[in-house]
Amino acid sequence: MTNAISVSGLVKTFGRTRALDGLDLTVGTGEVHGFLGPNGAGKSTTIRILLGLMRADSGKASLLGGDPWDDATDLHRRLAYVPGDVTLWPNLSGGEVIDLLGRLRGGIDAQRRSSLLERFELDPRKKGRAYSKGNRQKVALVAALASDVELLILDEPTSGLDPLMEAVFRDCVAEEKARGRTVLLSSHILSEVEALCDRVSIIRGGSVVETGTLVELRHLTRTSVTAELAHEPDGLTGLPGIHDLRVEGNRVSCQVEPAHLDELFGRLAALGLRNVTAAPPTLEDLFMRHYRTAPQHEVAR
């Protein structure tokens, strides 16, 4: 399988701020790739470099087999982009913007256009200045989804959408994937990435700290265990690989590293298990683990 996006050692500084600090990112063709990170982590900067709007200080980036800066215009025929904060021309209607962007990209599918408008419940006759943030986002989404491209680059595309529209968005991305399109989805909404993405890259302080399928990432992380016991728990504190242990009466909750699950459950069983839940960490947990610990290069923007 060839890679739609392949980036290595990307560095970008703004004055004294190091926005990207040796970022590596690989997105395979046909995959939906989640690009996760808090605000200011460098997600948008990476995307702007991939779009040829900015030039990296050093490092290599390849997009659909071409150079994002030198081959920008040719590459853009094959991709569509939705920015995180969409601003429209105040005096153009939403429908006009959708048509214009579609035509500038090399054509728009009229049927898909109208079906997307219907699904997103967007009135294309309103002028740019009259749309809310969510509706401006929908204009850009319809324009991107209605065009016939290989790669969709979506920068926090649902930040202004309500839950109903988020669901519509998820359906649309799933359809794009079924069509074999590649999607780079930057987000800080974890459930969205969990629901949609084949693989995830977690970015913090300008570099990717972890990348892989959700299964692979979970493998690296702890399991949350909550148990009700027959007896007062004791002797749990000394166990290896146990974190965030809390005891309230006969109730115990903690996090455990995968390698030490055996020991924990052995001890719990000995204490008389009445009830137990063991859950894989949600992406929330992954996030908290990576952002709670002080990052090496804090990015202040």
């Binding site: 021309w89 005096n91 153009l92 209607s93 429908g95 006009e96 959708i98 048509d99 214009l100 035509r103 500038l104 294309p124 006759r125 309103k126 002028k127 200045r129 009259a130």
Partner: peptide, 26 residues
Amino acid sequence: PPRLGPATAVPGLRSPLALAWRLHRG
């Protein structure tokens, strides 16, 4: 109150120059 615009773009609105003219003509 702001007026509604057209639901689709006129056929001519298909180049950056057409967009620029649209933005500057007023």
